[in-house]
């Protein structure tokens, strides 16, 4: 536990010691703000809710979260600090979980900084703030899912560019698996797979949260998704620490 918290604390501080934090937060906030009001049609809809914003977040995270995860392990490998980290008295899962929690907390900070949107809808109308909270919980779970996936991929390479590209591709796969295009394509040809694809789709699972519904089965999905990829991460790390 002590080791886990020490790793998480160091990682979290590292975001702010480098320009990573500033760049990430500024880009996220600018894009989230601008796209919510333009593409999302925040005003045009004439409804007091944050659905336009919530619909955007999984797609923004698709690019931004891999930018966070690409360095997690690939950079440790390139700098050689992985040799230091893994010869400290830490079990692999402590290191994996510590890094994951730091990145997740950082995403939570980014989401918290979108609070002006919440203030705006409350000023313009009387939204269901419970539903908004559910939407934020969903956003955090999507971030967690992408982070766990991206971190596992970062552990398998020493090249940050490869880690980034692989993570974007993999996140896209899980985001798009439930989209109408994929669903129609699959149900015409492989009906059995269409159901599986929808069930594994992060975007599909997130849709409920965006509407304000926290369903137990969706929470379980995200928890197992994250757990599975963290497990893969620890296994990859333990198996190919050095090469």
């Amino acid at each position: 536990m002590r080791g886990l918290l020490a790793v998480a604390r160091r990682e979290f501080a590292a975001y702010f010691a480098t320009p990573v934090a500033a760049v990430f937060l500024v880009i996220f906030l600018v894009l989230a703000g601008a796209l919510t009001f333009t593409v999302g049609g925040f005003f045009a809809r004439g409804q007091a809710d944050l659905i336009p914003f919530f619909n955007l977040v999984p797609w923004l995270f698709l690019f931004l979260v891999p930018a966070l995860t690409m360095r997690l392990w690939a950079e440790e490998r390139r700098l050689g600090t992985i040799e230091l980290l893994l010869t400290l008295p830490l079990s692999p899962w402590q290191a994996v979980l510590g890094k994951f929690l730091a990145a997740w907390a950082f995403c939570a900070v980014a989401l918290l900084l979108t609070f002006p949107l919440v203030l705006t809808v409350n000023f313009l109308g009387s939204p269901d703030n419970g539903a908004i909270l559910a939407g934020y919980v969903g956003c955090l779970l999507v971030a967690g899912a992408y982070l766990a996936l991206g971190a596992a991929l970062s552990a398998s390479t020493r090249n940050q560019v490869i880690a980034f590209v692989l993570a974007v591709a993999a996140c896209f796969l899980f985001a798009a698996a439930g989209s109408p295009v994929v669903s129609e394509f699959l149900s015409a040809r492989l009906p059995a797979l269409a159901e599986t694809a929808r069930a594994l789709s992060v975007a599909e699972r997130f849709a409920g949260f965006a509407r304000g519904v926290i369903a137990a089965k969706d929470v379980v999905f995200f928890a197992s998704f994250i757990g599975f990829w963290l497990f893969v991460n620890a296994a990859v790390l333990d198996h190919r620490k050095a090469d």
Binding site: A6, V7, R10, A13, A17, L79, T81, E83
Partner: peptide, 23 residues
């Protein structure tokens, strides 16, 4: 380790404090 790797952006004392905390 060979080449004495450490986290470049960290200050000396913070880096040692991190290792101390883990230990």
């Amino acid at each position: 380790p060979e080449g004495a790797p450490s986290y470049p952006e960290m200050e000396v004392e913070d880096f040692l404090a991190f290792c101390a905390r883990v230990r």
